[in-house]
Design a protein around this nucleic acid. Structure first.
Length: 299
DNA sequence: GCCCAGGTCAGCC
DNA sequence: GGCTGACATGGG
């Protein structure tokens, strides 16, 4: 590991940008804090250091990494224009106030797909731990003791038992079988770039362990489809509480998806990420379930 | 011990 | 199309 004073820091034009919240918002799972306000991670096989000495302040990276960082962190996304498309309701505006400066990354496709296959019914901290174990055990060594995310070829030849030993549980076979489809050339993620959102979603859903939620995450965090709106347990809670509180019956997933597409517009993916991160950052008590046996409003 | 987590899938109606 | 239960694991 390098010390901050050993790095030739270069400023990047990024405002508005909140590095800490962006990396903590549950879209990427391997960046580490290595010194106060300094993060280290990898983009493909490059080791990247980033520093932001105050939240939303000047962003710096090591000399030579500027272009890579600008692309990966989507520093070209016009955030103020995006915010102007958000609906004016309280839930959205509170999330915006909390998350201002969070950017949706352009992640390497396979790493994004694979980490979200491992994410099913897991907490962010678990996904992070699994991601690090997979890198350490099966990924190509880089410098500083770091490892690249294992390629499809590397994961395709790992035994199920060795994958389960990383804490993958029932996700182990899904990850390996999807890795095999890519390693064998039966699926080419790069080619999906030319498909429209709906077709790309359908094609991703054909992969083992990939359903609509994970496919939408990959569209959003890998393919830069900023309209994609993944619905997980948190987003479902938010939508039901703030947008469907008067509906008698519990809305179906399809209804939620259709509402979100209409209500949040062309940058629905940004809106979704802000609602997700805001909700998850609030005290648990705000989202506590009513206890069984106590009156829940039903008569 | 219980509950929950950035879900998916097969089997059923 | 919608609903249900099974599927692992770790932390609060």
């Amino acid at each position: 590991m390098r010390r901050p004073e050993q790095i030739a820091w270069v400023e990047l034009a990024a405002a508005p940008f909140d590095l800490e919240k962006t990396l903590a918002s549950g879209q990427v799972f391997h960046w580490e804090v290595v010194a106060p306000r300094v993060w280290r991670g990898t983009i493909h096989r490059a080791i990247i250091y980033l520093r932001q000495r105050e939240p939303g302040g000047v962003l710096e990276t090591g000399r030579g990494m500027e272009e890579l960082c600008c692309h990966y962190f989507a520093l070209d996304h016009p955030l103020e224009e995006i915010y102007a498309t958000f609906p004016p309701d309280a839930a959205m505006q509170e999330a915006l106030a909390f998350c201002r400066g969070v950017r949706i990354l352009r992640q390497p496709l396979w790493e994004c797909l694979a980490t979200f296959i491992t994410s099913a019914m897991k907490q962010v901290s678990h996904i992070t731990a699994i991601s690090h174990r997979l890198r350490q055990r099966f990924g190509s060594p880089l410098a500083e003791g770091l490892h690249a995310y294992p390629t499809p070829e590397q994961l395709a030849r790992v035994s199920e038992a060795d994958l389960r030993a990383c804490g993958l549980g029932f996700r182990a076979l899904n990850l390996r079988e999807t890795a095999r489809l890519l390693a064998d050339g039966d699926v080419d993620l790069e080619r999906f770039r030319q498909l429209d959102d709906e077709t790309a979603l359908q094609r991703l859903c054909l992969l083992p362990g990939v359903g609509p939620k994970i496919a939408n995450c990959v569209l959003l965090f890998g393919y830069e489809r900023v309209r994609a709106f993944p619905i997980d347990v948190w987003i479902e809670r938010v939508l039901r509480r703030y947008y469907f509180s008067e509906a008698g019956r519990r809305p179906t997933l399809r209804q939620l998806q259709e509402f979100a597409a209409e209500h949040f517009g062309p940058y629905g993916g940004y809106a979704q990420q802000y609602l997700f991160h805001h909700a998850r950052s609030q005290p648990r008590s705000l989202w506590a379930k009513p206890k069984k046996g106590v009156s829940s409003g039903r008569s």
